[in-house]
Design a protein around this nucleic acid. Structure first.
Lengths: 211, 211
DNA sequence: CGCGGTCTCTAACTTTCGATGGAGGCCGCT
DNA sequence: AGCGGCCTCCATCGAAAGTTAGAGACCGCG
């Protein structure tokens, strides 16, 4: 049963992390790192070549596409490799898009090497591994009815967090100030707050917007 | 001159990163990794044993002490090793405390391996290496006179960031609403903004308040 | 001891926000 | 076709926030 090894692609913009993953995974029998990618774009093109079983994907890349978009593009093709997210953060803003994009698993970089290898094998078999904190988060999502903001609401709130006035937001988004207010009023209701600064604070806590 | 190797301690809470640093640095002649630490506390005690030349220190540890505090404790002793910061972020809130704490250098994890090795050698010789973005940041600091907030101003601004109203801040701090407003007015002037949300945004960028 | 900076407070005034209660159009799903 | 989200817009009104222009008290430094 140990005939065909699992072929891996490492996608991370940090050379040190790639070297670490390589060092950790290549000591494992049955795992072979066949390629590395320093950008999300590279990962997409490399994964398309068809000789990869599992992609270990970071979410944050310094420039260009993010890991979530890359994951979506990779998993969109038929016969695509599995994508295992290996990242530093686990906020809602990170995990949910990645899972929606079709990731087969989600690990944190502080995971011990043996967990990593086990997750790779699980992913290769098409099953899911989630870091405990991520699993907790998902359970909470299901338990407490999701506080989800619409695209427009998130967009407006992000600009509020950037310090813009309602009028400035309206100009930026080609809306009237009144429309901006309506969006914000619904955001406040959803978040249970009554001011823009409070909305930014709790939305940041919930990981609904980027810091 | 290649007789005594440079002895290294790797301090990072991610096993993968430690493995990566080890892999990258041990291929370099004259460098030996003699110890690893998964927490800042461990790093401090291990560095005290006296057989270390350079500590590669992360700033973010999952739990407990941070890398900046650990750096301060390590460099405080006589005959202390050099501390080279190797981290992911380069905001003012990270770099400045670390440098104040006595770090000999500051690199980002996306640095290429050869830069890393070079920085270790430079650090061992007691000289400084800074990542370009960090150097830029320091130059800007010197060029634009420091935007420093007084204790009270920071205190008020932090509560604003928490989403409180001026009245609520006044109650919390035993001030009148008017006093809160005058503190904020001075904060706005210093930061060059004209609203509370903008103040929170730029103060967060500048690392003047915690997220 | 005077000077400068910080902290506190005041009062009146303008602008921006937020609440309220609609309303119409578009789109996807059934 | 009908229904439910989502997005857009409107007007009004009271409540915050921000502006301006002061002033007194404390404290450390030279």
């Amino acid at each position: 049963m140990t005939d065909t090894p699992i072929r891996l692609l490492l996608a991370d913009d940090h050379p040190v992390v790639r070297a670490g993953l390589r060092a950790v995974l290549e000591t494992e029998p049955g795992l072979v790192v066949v390629a590395e990618a320093a950008t999300a774009e590279d990962a997409v093109t490399r994964a398309a070549e068809g000789d990869i079983d599992v992609v270990l994907m970071d979410l944050q890349f310094g420039k260009g596409m993010g890991g979530a978009d890359a994951t979506a593009q990779i998993t969109a093709r038929p016969g695509a490799p599995r994508v295992l997210i290996v990242t530093t953060y686990d906020s809602d803003a990170d995990t949910l898009p990645a899972i929606e994009a079709g990731a087969t698993g989600y690990l944190l970089k502080d995971a011990p090497p043996e967990d990593l290898a086990a997750a790779v094998r699980t992913a290769a078999a098409g099953r899911t591994t989630l870091a405990p904190t991520v699993a907790d988060r998902l359970m909470n999502r299901l338990r407490t009815p999701a506080v989800t903001l619409t695209r427009r609401e998130t967009e407006v709130l992000a600009l509020v967090a950037g310090g813009l006035s309602n009028q400035a937001i309206g100009d930026r988004l080609h809306l009237t100030e009144g429309t901006v207010k309506s969006h914000l009023a619904r955001v406040y209701a959803k978040l249970g707050v009554d001011s823009r600064t409070a909305a930014v604070a709790t939305a940041t806590d919930l990981g609904l917007i980027r810091r």
